[in-house]
Design a binder for these strands. Structure first.
Lengths: 199, 199
DNA sequence: ACGCTTTTCTACCATATGGTAGACAGCGAT
DNA sequence: ATCGCTGTCTACCATATGGTAGAAAAGCGT
């Protein structure tokens, strides 16, 4: 019925990212996912033997996607830490605000079973390590404010993820998701982080 | 059976904050809450006519608790914005790390029905407005970096909430929840935010 | 055309969950 | 003692949900 190979599978993954990321894993039923994709629940269970394994696949795919976006941003930026950070923000914020579920899913991890959390943590660890080492070097070089590089990574992550995944918070300060609003948000976020990291 | 009046009710509220905050609203059943409190499910439904109304009560109580903590911190600090910010961090971080569910619950709001989110937003709005106005004034005074005060409030909130509610992220940078770890985290968070806000 | 594999669907099922109805117990006032 | 009120519990119920079993399509190589 459906055309290309793996079409259904990836459609299920995509819908699951959106649903799990925006409403949380346990608030979403297999029936609902199937409904969004337009197949029967059993088809979902054919591609992913259980809801748990679906979650695993969703987490892995999301991590890969985000890693690719960040990787590309870093690679295309000049070899200067503040410029690289700015590039990463720019690259991450657009998809994050347009599709809050992406980062929302990452945040969801902390509420899941330690098993799932550990699996994702392991997958992400090399990236975190590289980021930490890089920041550490640049701090030693005097191109960044002296601080604990690991915690700085975590703090920057928390800021970006937090602001991108909490429409509630932004709504409370009367922010609007218009084009100019998005531009303003990006500018403020960039300046905020750069100010926090500049030597 | 249970002694003082309202004892059961508040025990239910407390358990619900912890469970909803750490695992998410829909992942927690009334049976589980009742089990933690040590009563039958029907007792929970006696005090709160439905799971939804329980959630409302939980949200309201959490907002009040947090507001009180912040209020006290601001009041006890000298009239200088950076000192006040530092005081708020100090006051919020301890309960937040010791009981991640508190802020976790606040974060949970964005995944709930717009109704619940709106109710909480309305409740918090006056505080947000005051914070925004205060920051705006101090920026004009030159005691804080010039920026959009509303977004700065949201960003600072995102940073604190994010770092306090994501054990996963902290675990990824090999942070330990020891006493010295906590002290280090507080120092880094404070310096991070102050650097971001200093003129 | 025919068999073999891959994909999807139609029943079902066991269990968990939110919620209702109503009984029972403690207790203060009369 | 008994009435009435408050609080808690036992017994159910309807529904939603994750998952199983197996039938029907749909490709696809020969």
């Amino acid at each position: 019925m459906v055309t290309r190979r793996g079409m259904t599978r990836s459609a299920i993954l995509e819908a699951s990212v959106d649903l799990f990321g925006s409403r949380g894993f346990s608030a979403v039923s297999l029936d609902e996912i199937a409904g969004v994709v337009g197949v029967a629940k059993q088809t979902v269970l054919y591609w992913f033997p259980s809801k748990d394994e679906l979650l695993d696949a969703v987490l892995e795919q999301t991590a890969l996607e985000l890693a690719a976006v960040i990787e590309a941003a870093v690679r295309s930026a000049p070899d200067e830490p503040l410029a690289r950070i700015e590039a990463v923000i720019k690259a991450v914020l657009r998809p994050a605000v347009r599709r809050p579920a992406l980062l929302g899913l990452v945040r969801e991890v902390s509420r899941l079973s330690p098993d799932h959390a550990a699996r994702l943590t392991d997958q992400v660890r090399p990236f975190v390590r590289r980021a930490t080492e890089y920041l550490g070097e640049e701090m030693a070089n005097g191109r960044l404010r002296m601080a604990d590089p690991g915690l700085v990574v975590a703090l920057a992550y928390a800021t970006v993820t937090g602001i991108a995944t909490e429409p509630t918070a932004l709504q409370a300060v009367e922010w609007q998701a218009t084009t100019t609003g998005l531009r303003r948000l990006r500018r403020e976020l960039t300046e905020f982080l750069l100010a926090a990291l500049r030597p």
